[in-house]
Amino acid sequence: MSPGLAGVATGFRSFARYFNGVLGADAYAKYVEHHRAAGHATPPLSEREFWRDRTDRQDTNPQGRCC
């Protein structure tokens, strides 16, 4: 890959990472990281369980969206 193309690829990847962050798509990765760092004895939730729990908690804890 030419350096120019590699630069574009890196740029695109960091943009995708940023966009993922803004959308909140990296929430599971951050949860797992926290879980490991906090040294819990129990295994972390699976990805499916985590997202289920996340949206279900929003049911009882709604967040406003602005006008």
């Binding site: 940023y18 962050g21 803004v22 909140g24 929430a27 951050k30 949860y31 797992v32 990281e33 926290h34 879980h35 906090a38 729990d53 996340r54 908690r57």
Partner: peptide
């Protein structure tokens, strides 16, 4: 790891 999560400042700005 769920509600209270340190978030990169630029990502949080967008959010």
């Amino acid at each position: 790891g769920k509600d209270y999560v340190r978030t990169d400042r630029n990502v949080l700005f967008g959010h």
